[in-house]
Structure formats: structure tokens, C-alpha cells
Amino acid sequence: MPQTAAILLKDLRFGWRKNLPEVLHIPELEVPRGERIFIGGASGSGKSTLLALLAGVNLPTRGEVTVLGETINRLSGARRDHFRSDHIGFVFQLFNLIPYLSVLENVTLPCRFSQLRRQKATESGGDLHSEAMRLLTHLDMAHESLIHRPVTELSVGQQQRVATARALIGAPEIIIADEPTSALDSDMRQAFLRLLFQECDETGSTLLFVSHDRQLASLFERHIALDELNQADQEGR
């Protein structure tokens, strides 16, 4: 099977609204599969916007977004949503969990929307529940006292680990993390990253990691400064 790139952007342009100036203009970007990439850039530089484009939640005004060989901006809305749930796992900065679901329900949430990930998770763990427990164990979150607690009572670091298990379940090819560590102290940050790398290596997932924190950049194979990559008019941002 010819390995297509995990992500391929061509002449990507994006503005939030017609009357607003362009936020992003990326002439070209290619991310090979399995790579761990650090995306840095000033606040407001468009990092989260770029992730939303990669996820197919927003569409570029021009250009192409190709993920795993699929040009997702040509897909219908339903197919894009489907594609996202099948192939991409997310971790956000804070409050990643659905407050009314249990720890395990939060972890298995993507399997409600993706048949593919449900299938992969079941194959790997025997059933959804044990696969979720396996991931939580890796992330040191499988204590009885923790998983039966309402998610709103978990510490921030614990919440981030549950969110990571959710991003990883069903082994999606791409993991996108948007500042997942900015609420953690530096020791926690290191530990969290180690766990994340380990899991990504295990499943062979491509990791896109967004952060302000340049200190972390050295831990990644590749480092993209969005401010330099982005050709959009600086005044617009």
C-alpha cells in the first residue's frame, strides 16, 4: 500500500467571514505518517483555526486539505464529520470531558459516532469496556476510586489523561492536541507528554501538538512555527 502523507496542505487560505481579513494562508505543508509535530505560534496566530481546518469542521476558502489521502474539503458535511470521527482523536486545553458522562463513557464516546473505531477498539481489547480500561491503565487512571467519580470532580491533570484515552481509543491515525498541557505544572507536563508519545508510538499515530510553550518543542521530531509558515497579511490577525 503506497503510504500517502498524513496531512497535505496546498495553497490553503482561510478567513472566518467574507468581510473579515484572511487568517491563514499556507502555501504548502506536508506531514508524513507517524511523525510527532510541534506547532508553535503567538496567540491569535491561527493555530486552533488550522486544526479546525484539518478536522474538516471548517472549510478553506481556497486550496486543498488532504488528510490520509482524502481531500476532505471536497467531501460532504456528513462525510467530513464521519471522516473525523473515524481517523482523528482530539485533546483540548481544558474541560475536555462531557460532564454528564462517566469516565468510561467519556473514553468510549468516539465509538458512538465511529463504527470503525468501535471495531478497532473491540478487536484490540476484546470489548469496548476493557479497551478503555487498558488505555486508562496505561495512563495510570484505572483506579476504582477514580473511574467511578463524576468527571467534574477529577483534577485537571486527571481530566487531561481521560481525554487522552478518549483521543486514543480505536487507534485513530491522527491525534490532534490543542494546548493540552497549558493547565498543568511542568512536572505533570513532562509526564503527560511521555504518556502521549508512548501511546502514539504504540498505535503508530501521527501527533499534531499545539502549544505556546517553546520549551516543549525540543521533545518533538519536527517543529513548525506557524507565524513563519503563515503568509496571510499580518495585520489581519
Binding site: 478536522a55 469542521v57 458535511g77 464529520d81 473525523r84 470521527s85 483540548f92 468516539p110 459516532f113
Partner: peptide
Amino acid sequence: RREMAILRSVGARPGH
């Protein structure tokens, strides 16, 4: 709205 964004990220459609 945050809850909705999380649901969207795991593949929920606006229709969902």
C-alpha cells in the same frame, strides 16, 4: 457550547 464543541470533535454532526 463547550460540550457541543467536544461532541463535534468526536464526530457528532450539527444534526446530532
